[in-house]
Every structure is written in structure tokens, then in C-alpha cells.
Design a protein around this nucleic acid. Structure first.
Lengths: 347, 347
DNA sequence: AATGGCTTCCAAAGCGCTTTGGGTATGGTT
DNA sequence: AACCATACCCAAAGCGCTTTGGAAGCCATT
């Protein structure tokens, strides 16, 4: 059933039916009702494509997922983020279109999305330091919103980020207050903006407390269980080993825990661990009482909100960009405790 | 730049340009080359919407992700599957559109996708036993492909599944051969088809070896770390506790390991664990040598292949459905060993 | 009775593409 | 010289919708 058929059924013009269905004022209330009923009865759904062609709007948002062929890593955060964003789109009649793209020709994808008029805007995932995408998108005039921020960038843009710096200051402070002096950082790849900010928070705290910034204790890599394990295993083996770890992800933290236990140590007792927790639905940080002491922020909520910001930006192109920064919640679990006293013996 | 402008630039008709670009034979080789060069030079990208309108094909595949509002769980497997499917779509000029949908009105979404002509076909995720979706999709004439299978279903359909039954027979056999007699099953929700099949494999093996099927040892729930932990913790506390666990997911297995270690036991020694491993990119089963003994099959590859089957089905609507069953690889890791001898003492 | 302003509706153009149904050279046959 | 394929190209219709620019009817004012 298309518009023409529906309007013939009703004995009205396509114009009137279209207007009735889209809430335009120049149609009698009674007529509108009649049209709406008929649309429902005949199960009429307008063709998105035709609508898009006619209006010039795609009613779709693009999510471009960069995936280096080197790492072949899908960000585990991605599923939950998408779920959140999807809720917003569903509520607003938008579609979500996904492009998995080799990060070598990301440019091409954005340009193509623009030129084919396939989407009304895009969400930028996984921003890196000095990310060229924001300049690109500004230049080609594609509305966008960034999940995260971009350090070294002067252009204004819409984004939503968690306060990574603050979260890691807090995490480090907390460990310091427990007496830890050797605190390791198991960070994500520091080409990623979020990881950069987290390290900066970590360093800020160390400096504020007069602790040395020891490059040996700072690791930056993919956030996988295995790498978390290997890093912790190595670090626990060195002289003057750390008594505490700060992890960028719950997944890394699981690996760190494995290394701790493998060594016969007790987490929260011999070695403390704080992690960031994205509150992924399939990887919760324990039940009522958390396992890991953590800085946490729901990535799902982030998806929902950032999608809203983007839709807003599309509707009101002249407004200045929305910038949202979410504070993390700090929760105390079983993974942290006072620094062991062996340091005192060492004196 | 649109077709009209491009054709004016070239001094050709839209027809010829369109044909040249789409590989129709009735255009001179030299002309075609000229057109292709110009298209590149002017960065011409045809509008997907217009193309879709004109051809009646959407050049898009829908993925509808059911998400019960109860569980609010995003299947962790999803990201990698999508990544695989995305590669196929990119290669074939298709777009992927995602709908996150409350599973209460899934019907509506499929119908709507069909009526709005938004997609050429859909991938069905997370099939349940006796899943009504395959009847629905057959009825409304929407091409589809299922990631998994549907028990209790007589209609033919295209699918790709791992051989879940066989994998769990093999896992159980392996443990039996190591001398384990009390083998627990930490399964996914058994409303899901894959979980149902896995249990059936597990039971088949037990029966074949004359072991009792003890409902106490069979648990079915969400596949999260926490639930894995809780289940194992409980089971290790009972009389005549299991000496081995079979897990439906690496994530559950991580929880099981935590429970084992918390009890001061050693995995692979006191208690054995076999798990299914979807080979998720961010959750690898160890490095070169696996941590867990596992039945494994890449969900990413599954995504790539199933997408191909679907595209094939769309191109050749009259062919009979493709049915693909992938055998799992069985890898031996550190998590399994001979059953402890305390049972002998018990005699 | 003529005018003007509302309200309610419509015909037709247009969005950017594909495709049908020819048309015009060109060259080879009778 | 007339004819016919063949190769190459084109004008225009159509996909299903929105939207422009009226038109018709009705009432209240002059």
C-alpha cells in the first residue's frame, strides 16, 4: 500500500493524505482522523527512501566503527553504546546505519556517506589525540557528535565524554590515601584520547602527592584480559614491585587479578586494584557489592545521551555545539586495602 | 554533483552515464572510460535513496537486536559478529542497518522494515527454541538468515550455526576420559536454541558413558562473570561437588575460575573447566597456549559467512536455503587435568 | 452585490536515479 | 542504390513521497 493507493481509497488527494499524516495544520480534524484510521487499517508505512528523496533528509544516523586491520579489535564497549543510542533513534524515528571500516580509508567513508546523502549525521567513535576526523567532518559539512573528546583541537564540536582525568585523579588519590606509593597504570592505547586523559589524571595525582612518576609502572596497550595479565605478571616480578594497579577497563582488571592470584597473593590485601568500569551489561562488576573498587560510568547511558545531542544538533544547525561531561561514580569494592607494610620493613 | 550535472559536464545523456557506471554493455569502451574518469574526478557518488527508489532494492540489510527490557543484556558476541558481517556488506555495496528493539514488539519491527522497504533482508539474532520469527518472516516474504538454528520448526530457512551439540559431546567426553564423573554444566538460558543444543550434547555424552544426569549440576542462566562465579561457588559447596565444569562462554568461565581460586583450589588440578570460546577479539583465551580447554569457533567468521549466505539468498530467491554448520575446534589448555583421586578414597 | 479572508483541499512539479522504447550513424550485404 | 544489422546513444516515464502555488467554498464585511 502506497500513498497513491491510500489516497484513492479515501477519495482524497495525495497532498491531503500526506499532510494529514505528517501533522500539517491545513487539514480538517475530522479528515485527519479518517486518514489516520485508514493508514492504520491498511497498514500503511511510507517508504523511507521516497521520503528521504523528497525531503532531502535521510532519517538515519551513521556510526562508523574504525577497525585497524592490525588489531582486528572490536571495542567491547561498542555493543552497549549502540544499544543506548538505538533507543534514542527508535524514539525519534531515525535509523542507525553501521559502517565497519578499515581505518586506512576512513576519510573515504565519511565523504561517501555525505555525498550519497545516506545519513543526516554521524557519531564518531574512538577519538584519538589530534584526531583528523573532526576537521574533516567540519569541512565537508557533515553534522557529527563525538564519543569522547579530542585533545589538540581548536574547532568547536559536539561531544560527550566521561571525566577521565578527574576519575583517574580520584582513583590515584584513593590509593595514595591507603598508603600506596608504587602505583602501576595499566592503560589503554595512549593514542586514544581517553587513555591520554586518564594518564594525565594519574600523573596529576602522583605529582600532587610528591610521588615519582616512574615510566616502568606505566603501561599502555590494548585492553584485553591477556594483556592485563601479562602486564601485572611482569610488574609483580620486578624489584620494588607496585602494590597497586589502576586499570583502564574491567577486562584488563580481570587479567591483573589472575596474575595476582597466580602469584599466590590476595587482591585487596597484598595488592590493590582500581579499575574503570563501563558498566557493560554482560560484564558487571559483581553483584550488590562490587568486586573491584572502580570509577564507573554507564556507556549505555552515554550512547543514549550523545545520540540525543546529535539529533539536537541536526535539528538546530545554528546552535553552538553541546558539550557533555559525565562525572564518574566512585565505588569501593573488595579489591583495595591499605598498602602492605613490607615497605616499612624496607626502610 | 548528481547524475544530471555529471552528464551535462560530459555532454552525454543521463542514460548513457548511468549505464556506463553500472556496467551495462551498450556503451562504447572509450565512452565508459571517460565517464568513469569524470565520476572519479568530480567525486560523484549516486544517492542511495534515489537508486533504491528507482530499482526497488534497498541495498541494505537489517540486523534486529532483540533486547528484553528485563535483562537489558547486550549479547557480547554481537560486536564481533557485526564486524564480520560488515566486511561482507562493504565488499558488496550493502549497508547495514541496526534496530535495537524491545522484544515485546519484534513483530512490528520486521513488518515495518518490510513495508517501508527499508532493507532487502534481515539477519535473525539469538534464535530461541520454537522461535516464531521464522514463520513471521516467511509469511511476510522478507528474506532472512538465522545466526543459529531453530528447534521445532518445519519451514526451510537459511542459517549458519556452530555444531553446538557435537561440541558439548566432545567437551563432556574429554572430561570423562580424564576420569571426571561429576561434571557440572554452566549453560546459557535454555530458552535460547544454542543452549538447548549444548545441554543436549552434554546429556548425550553422559548417557553414553552411563553417568547419571543430575539436575543439581545443570544450571541455565545469563552468561555473565558474576553468574558464573555464583554458580560455581554454590556447586563447589555441595556434597559430592563436581570436579569439572563445562561453561557456555568464556565470560562465565572467568567467573567459575574466580570461585575455584577463591576456595583455594587450583584450576586444572583440583577442578577442571572446559568452555566454549567464541573467539571474541577483546577476550582471547590466552596467548599462544590457551588458558582454558575449549571448544572454539570464531563468531566473526560466522558473521562474514552468514552475511554472504543472506546476500546469496537475496540474489537467487529461488534457490533452496543454505544451511551451514561449523565444527568447533577443540583446544586443550591449562584448565583441565585428571580427576582428583579423592573419589577413590571415598570408595 | 462585491470584496476579502479563512479553511480545506488539489494538481503538478520535483527529489536523483533506472529503464523502456526508440533513434541515428556506421558498415556490410544484396 | 537500397536494405539491414549492429553499435551507440537519447528522451521521457516512473519509483513514492513532499511541497509549491493555487482553487473552491464559505462566511463576515463593506
Amino acid at each position: 500500500m502506497n500513498l497513491k493507493q491510500l489516497s484513492e481509497q479515501l477519495g482524497l488527494s495525495q497532498t491531503t493524505v500526506s499532510r494529514a499524516l505528517n501533522g500539517y495544520p491545513e487539514v480538517n480534524a475530522a479528515t485527519r482522523l479518517r486518514v489516520e484510521d485508514a493508514a492504520k487499517a491498511f497498514n500503511y508505512h511510507p517508504s523511507t527512501r521516497a521520503k528521504g528523496l523528497a525531503t532531502g533528509r535521510a532519517l538515519a544516523i551513521g556510526h562508523v566503527i574504525p577497525m585497524s586491520t592490525k588489531h582486528e579489535m572490536v571495542n567491547p564497549v561498542f555493543g552497549d553504546f549502540i544499544a543506548g543510542a538505538g533507543e534514542t533513534y527508535a524514539r525519534n524515528g531515525y535509523e542507525m546505519i553501521l559502517s565497519i571500516v578499515d581505518d586506512s580509508n576512513e576519510d573515504e567513508i565519511y565523504r561517501s556517506l555525505k555525498l550519497r546523502r545516506a545519513v543526516d549525521g554521524v557519531i564518531v567513535h574512538g577519538p584519538r589525540i589530534d584526531d583528523p576526523r573532526i576537521a574533516l567532518l567540519s569541512e565537508i559539512g557533515m553534522p557529527f557528535a563525538v564519543h569522547g573528546q579530542v585533545t589538540h583541537n581548536s574547532l568547536p564540536y559536539t561531544f560527550l565524554d566521561v571525566d577521565n582525568h578527574d576519575a583517574f585523579v580520584q582513583a590515584t588519590d584513593y590509593l595514595f590515601d591507603l598508603g600506596h606509593q608504587r602505583i602501576a597504570l595499566v592503560n589503554g592505547l595512549e593514542t586514544m584520547d581517553f587513555a591520554y586523559r586518564r594518564r594525565s589524571g594519574y600523573e596529576t595525582s602522583l605529582r600532587a602527592h610528591g610521588l615519582a612518576i616512574d615510566p616502568v609502572l606505566m603501561r599502555s596497550s590494548e585492553m584485553t584480559e591477556v594483556i592485563g595479565y601479562e602486564t601485572a605478571r611482569d610488574l609483580l616480578g620486578i624489584n620494588n614491585a607496585p602494590t597497586a594497579f589502576i586499570c583502564a577497563s574491567l577486562i584488563s582488571a580481570l587479567g591483573v587479578r589472575r596474575a595476582i592470584e597466580e602469584r599466590g597473593l590476595v587482591m585487596g590485601n597484598d595488592v590493590s586494584v582500581v579499575t574503570h568500569d563501563d558498566m557493560l551489561s554482560y560484564l558487571q562488576n559483581g553483584g550488590e557489592t562490587p568486586i573491584f573498587t572502580a570509577t564507573r560510568s554507564s556507556v549505555r547511558t552515554a550512547g543514549r545521551q550523545l545520540a540525543e545531542s546529535l539529533l539536537h544538533a541536526i535539528e538546530h544547525p545554528n546552535n553552538s555545539p553541546q558539550e557533555t561531561i559525565l562525572k564518574c561514580e566512585f565505588v569501593v569494592g573488595h579489591s583495595t586495602g591499605p598498602a602492605p607494610r613490607k615497605d616499612e620493613h624496607g626502610l
